[in-house]
């Protein structure tokens, strides 16, 4: 069993004026090279968990560790460099007044990666190409792109510092159905090519099944089931997981077999 790269131990997060904790004693461990899906419905605590793992929010109790070290003992620049994130809606995650190149180059500038301006520009061109955009798209602005392309820009920004872990918060649910598949394929391809470890938060088990080897099912701030995706999806133990699986709208099965 490899050492987890990112882990949470007994994470609890309470918010003022809420009777129930948003997160209630959650253990999570992300091992290098094993993509993990976090599944649940609204109010399950998925996004709260993601924010804790991302170090933009602190747990009320419990601890997040990066490569075995508690987060407050890790150099922030090192952590940010290694752990990056893609948000749900690229319409709000990209500053409308910045060019694509400066958006994608932001982590490089802020984390002082790259020897000089030219080196950073080269890296920006490289990641834009990696997500299927053209280097010259860097001169344009987010509103000139479609939803799917904008999400590619957000992915390029996350990839720029060459992180080991990529957190993704519902990365396709704000996109049109026909574009979703392209973004899923892109993520899956990047995971393979760059050896990324993906932590995918989604309400959609089907998408998690496409991208993650392991899955964690959450409900009301707790983990109700976890394990290899194939096991959880085919032999769910928890009652709620079963309900969740049964609720997914399906095309007629004989049609799928024909394909």
């Amino acid at each position: 069993m490899t050492e987890p790269i990112l882990s949470g131990h007994q994470l609890t997060r309470r918010f003022p004026r809420r009777s129930h904790p948003a997160l209630d004693g959650v253990d999570i461990s992300v091992r290098p090279g094993v993509s993990l899906g976090i599944v649940g419905e609204s109010g399950a605590g998925k996004s709260t968990l993601l924010r804790l793992l991302l170090g933009v929010d602190r747990p009320s109790s419990g601890e997040v560790r990066f490569a075995g070290q508690p987060l407050d003992r890790v150099r922030p620049r090192e952590f940010r460099r290694q752990v990056q994130v893609v948000f749900q809606d690229p319409r709000s995650s990209l500053n409308p007044r910045m060019s694509v190149a400066s958006i994608v180059g932001e982590p490089l500038r802020s984390l002082r990666i790259g020897a000089d301006r030219a080196a950073r520009a080269e890296r920006v061109a490289e990641v834009l190409t990696a997500v299927g955009l053209r280097p010259q798209d860097g001169r344009r602005y987010p509103h000139e792109f479609s939803g799917g392309q904008r999400q590619r820009i957000a992915i390029a920004r996350a990839l720029a510092p060459a992180p080991r872990v990529l957190l993704a918060d519902e990365p396709v649910s704000a996109l049109d159905v026909s574009v979703r598949l392209q973004v899923i394929d892109l993520l899956s391809d990047l995971v393979d090519r760059l050896g990324l470890t993906l932590v995918l938060v989604s309400h959609d088990l089907a998408i998690v099944s496409q991208l993650c080897q392991e899955v964690l099912v959450m409900r009301h701030g707790r983990v109700v089931e976890r394990g290899p995706t194939a096991d959880v999806l085919t032999r769910p133990v928890d009652e709620y997981t079963r309900t969740l699986l049964a609720a997914i709208p399906q095309l007629p099965t004989d049609l799928l077999e024909e394909q």
């Binding site: 598949l181 899923i184 899956s188 995971v191 496409q210």
Partner: peptide, 17 residues
Amino acid sequence: ARVTRLARPGSVSGTGG
């Protein structure tokens, strides 16, 4: 079809498709 198809044993590779 692809997005909604749930993984079946043996087909989960993390890459999908």
